[in-house]
Design a protein around this nucleic acid. Structure first.
Lengths: 115, 115
DNA sequence: CATAATAGTGTACGACATACAGTATAAATG
DNA sequence: CATTTATACTGTATGTCGTACACTATTATG
């Protein structure tokens, strides 16, 4: 990643990827399917980004995981814990608040052309 | 900062503070007044966060600065460079895109109560 | 069979918000 | 007037996470 815009984009993704992943774990999902679901929703996330994030979320006790070895391939399913649901709600509120603030700051600049 | 939510909030601010600051530098501003303007817009930013950020933005040639020593206190004014305007536009587009994606992901979860 | 897809673990690095320390002086306050 | 607060800035270290990379393993596909 050499571009300055790429660096800034990575910074924007910090925090928001957490929110995106938590939002998909109201119901149990396994890692690889999360990548696909999020991609279908326009949120591109590599496995190399997702698995460490899931690992951290589990360590933070926001999600719990369990193995399903009944299929031809073993899959690790993740789901929000009760605590995770609480934090998810609060984080969503925080994100909305910040988004409204930034939106009003940028409002006058929306007519700026961008290439 | 001990709370997990505080940590996540800091992560959400990464990138967005850059956008907020760039948005205020269409016209020349000095550091201390930026803190106040942003605070008036609901974006709380400490001097200890703002000055290093202005330093980085100048290093990245997105803004330029000049001293005004005519007042009773010397003030360093910052303003977007031409390059900074370009990057600002692109970053704004990137932010809008990400915000719409996340908004649609969280849509079904908006009725979740939050304390 | 070789490659791609599926599914996962582990580790190191770069970037930035933040805290902290520091300097300096004008303005406000008691 | 002495003290405190406000104004205005510089410099540095730390914690956090997205990212890249290396690796393992097996099923599906051409």
């Amino acid at each position: 990643m050499g571009s300055l815009l790429d660096t800034f984009t990575t910074e924007l993704r910090r925090g928001t990827l957490t929110l995106a992943v938590l939002s998909q774990l109201r119901t149990p999902q396994y890692g690889y399917s999360l990548v696909q679901q999020l991609e279908n929703a326009g949120v591109i996330i590599e496995q190399s980004t997702l698995y460490p994030l899931l690992r951290r979320l589990e360590k933070q006790e926001l999600v719990s995981s369990s193995w399903d070895t009944n299929e031809s391939r073993p899959r690790k399913f993740y789901v929000l814990s009760d605590y995770g649901i609480e934090v998810y709600k609060q984080l969503m509120d925080e994100w909305k608040k910040m988004t409204l603030e930034l939106k009003s700051l940028l409002q006058g600049d929306e007519n700026i052309e961008s290439d």
